[in-house]
């Protein structure tokens, strides 16, 4: 009896310990985002107060209005959408078949090339491409930004798709080939529908890491072709003193990604656990 009571107490202590460690792990993540929200909803007096004001009272949307009124944020949002959607769509169009081909041909060396691309610092692609685009007269348009974003999106898509196509049973496609289908038809009508979850994962990850990219934009973007991360950085350099608009701008940039993460967390977890992919 006494033993059972002690083990019950031990189990309770273990639950409490687990609860506390989860709280300790999650609260820094939650705090930074809540603080960003708090800064963006407070007026300048409250933001500069010490001790800090935690809960905006009353909350104000003036910072968001200011960001869109004083900077051309609408244009930058459109730029970011064009760049990330095009870079993701192009990467899917060429990366999904490539993942299939590499998985089927079991080309380990091609997979290795993708890995080396993942290891290389983004800046080392950027200097030669910058010179190339300058020579082609493309600087100041969105084209070079979309093209450089392929450096991020193509390896992600190919890498995720190799994993998914390798996991498919090959009997189905072989049956189709025996029945006289071409390999393109076997890919298009047998393998691709089965790998749809993989395509979803690849799309989400490619889009997020393209959206988040800062480095390529800061070098290649002109005044009118800034993507959102670059635009936010520019707000920082010009308005270092006012925190409200800064936090509001930061929130505008990252909100779509946070929303996507909340909605598709299962797919994101699956994709990242599989390959440890990350852009940049």
């Amino acid at each position: 009896m006494a033993v059972r009571r002690r083990s019950k107490a031990a189990r309770l202590a273990k639950r409490a310990g687990l609860g506390l460690s989860v709280l300790a792990l999650v609260s820094p993540a939650a705090f930074v985002f809540l603080w960003m929200l708090s800064l963006s909803l407070k007026n300048e007096v409250d933001n500069m107060a010490f001790p800090p004001v935690f809960v905006p009272h009353p909350p104000t949307f003036a910072n968001f209005v200011k960001v869109f009124a004083e900077n051309d944020f609408l244009r930058y949002t459109v730029n970011s959408c064009i760049v990330s959607f095009s870079a993701t769509a192009l990467a899917l169009a060429i990366g999904v078949p490539a993942g299939y081909g590499i998985a089927k041909a079991r080309a380990a060396r091609a997979a290795m090339l993708i890995l080396i691309a993942r290891i290389t610092p983004g800046l080392s692609y950027l200097i030669p491409l910058f010179l190339l685009f300058q020579w082609l007269g493309l600087l100041g348009t969105l084209t070079p930004i979309v093209i450089t974003h392929l450096v991020i999106t193509v390896p992600i898509v190919v890498w995720v798709m190799i994993g998914f196509f390798e996991g498919l049973p090959r009997e189905l496609e072989e049956a189709a080939l025996v029945d006289g289908a071409t390999i393109w038809q076997a890919f298009r009508h047998v393998a691709l529908p089965l790998a749809r979850p993989g395509v979803t994962v690849a799309t989400i990850l490619a889009f997020i890491f393209s959206w988040n990219n800062f480095l390529f934009g800061i070098v290649l973007a002109g005044r009118t072709t800034r993507t959102l991360p670059v635009a936010v950085y520019n707000v920082l350099t010009f308005e270092q003193v006012s925190w409200g608009p800064l936090a509001a701008a930061a929130l505008v940039v990252t909100a779509p990604v946070l929303l996507l993460t909340l909605l598709a967390q299962k797919e994101i977890v699956a994709g990242l656990t599989a390959g440890g992919v990350k852009g940049g």
């Binding site: 792990l25 999650v26 993540a29 939650a30 930074v32 985002f33 603080w35 960003m36 800064l39 500069m48 010490f50 800090p52 997020i208 959206w211 988040n212 800062f214 959102l228 991360p229 670059v230 936010v232 950085y233 920082l236 925190w243 800064l246 936090a247 701008a249 930061a250 929130l251 940039v253 990252t254 990604v257 946070l258 996507l260 993460t261 909340l262 967390q265 994101i268 977890v269 990350k278």
Partner: peptide, 27 residues
């Protein structure tokens, strides 16, 4: 778990900005 993975999905520039405001020595 979703809240825990938010930092790695968030736009680095945006969170760097928030941290730089949090690091301010006086305020």
């Amino acid at each position: 778990r979703t809240v825990f993975i938010l930092p790695m999905m968030a736009t680095p520039v945006a969170i760097a900005l928030v941290w730089s405001m949090m690091f301010h020595p006086q305020l």
